[in-house]
Design a protein around this nucleic acid. Structure first.
Length: 237
DNA sequence: TATTGATCATAT
DNA sequence: ATATGATCAATA
């Protein structure tokens, strides 16, 4: 992706203010200001919305390890919502550290670290809406509540336990209350070193941790008295 | 039609 | 190759 990028924010306050200034704008407007072309659809540009918002907010370069706002310790997540304010998709969090997973407690896990501080930026996400016409919603700077963290930690223990015992190949997306494990790869032929039940090294499809829709939906629902896309929501309900 | 399993693009 | 950003599309 070429084009301009905003300077990094120096505080959470500044970051949030900047994100709030995006609310109600369309993706076409943001793209124009950054000198970017809007793709006809997201089939061949799946990360485009996230990368666009990163640039608009001055996040560190995409595909660079670590938090999006390294100085602030904040992770940025765009969240595609349907007309009722429900997430259209699950939310990718991080890859599964196949071999180290058994040695990591919840607090030392990449899952915990990534979710410690998140700036959620809702964006209209229904496929029928042209990408450029989609509106950005009101942002939310979030950390898990005690209740949410308890659920996340419980899922980590369960999922990491299965993987740590070599059960990665039998682990399906049905396991986990808030978090699930699903493939995360360029295609089905990708293999990565993992361990089977006997501790023998095997090649397995890379997996990632994803947040279920029910979990992210609860986050945005609790935070907005009105629909999450208030300024961007032109629905007639 | 909601969810799971599969996949796409870019940067380093 | 790996990590970033996610959404697509077949299936149950």
């Amino acid at each position: 992706m070429r084009g301009a990028s905003a300077p990094p924010p120096e505080s959470e306050r500044e970051l949030l203010a900047r994100a709030q200034s995006l609310a109600g704008r369309t993706l076409a407007e943001l793209a124009a200001e950054l000198g970017l072309a809007v793709p006809p659809d997201l089939r061949r540009a799946k990360g485009w919305v996230g990368q666009l918002v990163e640039r608009a907010l001055g996040a560190c370069a995409a595909s660079r390890p670590g938090p999006d706002f390294a100085a602030l310790g904040v992770e940025l997540k765009t969240l595609p919502l349907d007309r009722h304010g429900r997430p259209c998709e699950t939310t990718f969090v991080c890859n599964v550290p196949m071999r180290a997973v058994s040695e990591l407690s919840w607090r030392d896990s990449p899952l915990c670290h990534k979710l410690a501080r998140v700036l959620w930026v809702p964006v209209e996400g229904e496929r029928q809406l042209p990408v450029g016409a989609r509106h950005v919603g009101a942002p939310l700077l979030w950390s898990p509540s005690a209740e949410e963290e308890a659920v996340l930690a419980g899922d980590w223990e369960e999922l990491a336990g299965i993987i740590g015992r070599g059960g990665i190949e039998s682990l399906t997306a049905r396991v986990g209350r808030a978090v699930q494990v699903r493939p995360k790869a360029a295609h089905g032929g990708v293999r990565r070193r993992s361990l089977d039940a006997e501790g023998t090294s095997i090649d397995a499809l890379p997996r990632g941790f994803y947040l279920r829709v029910s979990f992210t939906e609860a986050i945005v629902r609790r935070s907005y008295a009105a629909p999450a896309l208030r300024r961007g929501d032109r629905s007639t309900r």
